[in-house]
Amino acid sequence: MSGKVTELEALLVPVVEALGYSCWGIEYLSQGKHTLLRVYIDHPEGVSVEACAAVSRQASAVLDVEDPISGDYTLEVSSPGMDRPLFRLEQYAAYVGEQAKIRLRSPYEGRRNFQGVIRGVEGDEVVLQVDDHEYLLPVDWIDKGNIIPRF
Rank of each mutant, 00 (worst) to 15 (best):
S2H: 11
S2Q: 12
G3P: 09
L8R: 00
L8D: 09
L8E: 11
L8C: 13
L11S: 10
L12M: 05
P14M: 11
V15L: 12
V16L: 09
L19G: 14
Y21W: 13
Y21C: 06
Y21L: 08
S22Q: 11
C23W: 01
C23P: 05
G25E: 03
I26Q: 00
Y28W: 13
L29K: 15
S30R: 15
Q31T: 01
G32S: 06
K33M: 06
K33D: 08
H34Y: 11
L36H: 08
V39E: 01
I41P: 04
D42E: 14
E45D: 14
G46V: 11
G46A: 08
V47K: 01
S48G: 04
S48L: 10
V49P: 04
V49M: 09
E50L: 07
A51P: 07
A51Q: 00
A53H: 06
A53R: 03
A53G: 03
A54F: 00
A54P: 00
V55W: 01
S56R: 06
R57M: 04
R57L: 07
Q58W: 00
Q58E: 15
A61N: 08
V62T: 13
V62F: 10
L63V: 12
L63D: 01
D64M: 09
D64A: 13
D64C: 09
E66Q: 15
D67H: 08
I69E: 03
I69K: 02
S70R: 10
S70D: 13
T74H: 08
L75N: 02
L75E: 05
E76T: 01
E76Y: 10
V77S: 12
S78D: 14
S78A: 15
S79I: 09
S79R: 05
S79H: 09
P80F: 11
G81E: 03
G81I: 02
G81S: 08
G81K: 02
D83A: 15
P85G: 13
P85N: 01
L86M: 01
F87Q: 02
R88T: 09
R88K: 12
E90H: 05
Q91E: 14
Q91G: 05
Y92G: 01
A93W: 08
Y95A: 03
V96C: 07
E98L: 12
Q99C: 02
Q99I: 00
A100Q: 04
I102C: 07
R103E: 14
L104R: 11
R105M: 08
Y108M: 15
E109F: 06
G110R: 02
F114C: 08
Q115A: 09
G116D: 05
V117W: 00
V117L: 06
R119Q: 14
R119P: 05
G120N: 02
V121Y: 09
V121Q: 07
V121E: 08
E122T: 09
G123E: 02
D124A: 15
E125L: 04
E125I: 00
E125R: 14
V126R: 03
V127S: 03
L128I: 05
Q129W: 04
V130D: 04
V130W: 02
V130I: 07
V130N: 04
V130G: 13
D132I: 10
D132N: 13
H133P: 00
E134H: 07
L136R: 14
L137V: 14
P138E: 05
D140Q: 13
K144F: 11
I148C: 14
P149L: 15
F151A: 14
